[in-house]
């Protein structure tokens, strides 16, 4: 519960505390074994007879296995490792991520993706605007800026790690590419779990929701995959007068939905709940149902109500299982 801290009055604080306590007392759906949390330099219980593999976050100190991170001890067969609860983003091959271009280098773009290093998107891993598969020439290299500029928001997939440790991305499919007409939100990366689907088209709102595994979430107007959005921005540069620009603005209805979804994401990340499409849509629907102003979604009352709703949802799930 880090970023947003709305000022709660006394009753709201009490309600929030009781809701959070109930959430902790409910058995978590994932593992049935009790969580064993460790802090730095805590010894980990191992059976010294088996040859245990010491995994990430552990260290061998005089025969004792000691933790080097604060987190939870996980055991898988012979592997013992420490999983940090508020872990940084750890890229895996095939992850769908959203990143921002910070630099254009020879034959590649460098993107910031909330990782300890910048990721690289090679010119050859990107489809050319005319769609033909051909060898990239020097002219293509000079025209890189026409495809992606500095500070552009791009959706791509992790291709892998190179031998020197840098992270490479690819954006060869139609669904990847530049993202416009929307807003980018940053949430802690551990709140996003890997799922089958990261691109969500919320039809009832006409909104595209892309949940990047690195904690960057894109909420924007729906764009058909493959539509040449690049042309729109070029028109903008030519027609800089206000009237001609205004017809290309997002319509108000869609914008309201975008803001509602964005506020739902901000709220859930402030509460520390995992971000899934269902949770986000539920929160947005609840705010529509209770007729709360979009701005008031970030206020104290709705904050507490969302926590209480989550308690009820988890309690009903536990009851269904048991």
């Amino acid at each position: 519960m880090r970023d947003l801290q709305p000022s709660l009055n006394q009753t709201q604080r009490v309600r929030l505390q009781s809701a959070l306590r109930q959430l902790h007392s409910l058995p978590s759906s994932s593992s049935s074994s009790p969580l064993s949390s460790v802090a730095v330099a805590d010894p980990i219980q191992v059976n010294h007879d088996d040859n245990i593999l010491k995994g990430h976050g552990t260290l061998d100190c005089d025969g004792e296995v000691v933790a080097t991170l604060c987190g939870v001890v996980e055991r898988v067969n012979k592997l013992v490792y420490v999983r940090a609860l508020r872990a940084r983003y750890k890229p895996e091959v095939g992850d769908i991520i959203v990143g921002r271009v910070i630099e254009i280098a020879p034959k590649r773009w460098r993107l910031e993706i909330n990782f300890s290093q910048v990721a690289v998107l090679m010119l050859s891993s990107m489809n050319l605007p005319d769609g033909i598969q051909r060898r990239r020439t020097a002219v293509d290299e000079l025209n890189m800026r026409s495809i992606f500029e500095e500070n552009d928001v791009i959706c791509a997939e992790v291709r892998g790690f190179q031998h020197d440790g840098s992270l490479h991305l690819q954006a060869r499919s139609q669904k990847y590419g530049k993202l416009e007409r929307g807003q980018l939100l940053t949430v802690p990366a551990y709140l996003v779990k890997r799922r089958k689907q990261h691109f969500h088209h919320l039809e009832q709102y006409g909104v595209d929701l892309i949940i990047g595994c690195n904690g960057f979430i894109w909420v924007g107007e729906h764009v058909e995959a493959g539509e040449n959005v690049g042309m729109l921005v070029e028109d903008q540069k030519k027609t800089s007068t206000a009237e001609e620009e205004s017809w290309s603005f997002t319509p108000l209805e869609t914008r309201k939905h975008i803001c509602r979804i964005a506020n739902a994401v901000r709220l859930l990340s402030a509460l520390g709940f995992t971000l899934t499409v269902e949770a986000i849509v539920d929160t947005a629907e609840a705010s529509l149902a209770s007729n709360i102003e979009i701005n008031d979604m970030l206020g104290a009352e709705f904050f507490v109500q969302t926590a209480e709703r989550e308690v009820q949802r988890r309690a009903s799930m536990v009851r269904k299982k048991g």
Partner: peptide, 26 residues
Amino acid sequence: MVGLSEGEKHFIRGGIAQDLRSDGRK
């Protein structure tokens, strides 16, 4: 102070023109 892409800037300008900012404020 992160930079913003043209698309995002366009979105923010549109929001301000329509009296609905990114977080729903007037």
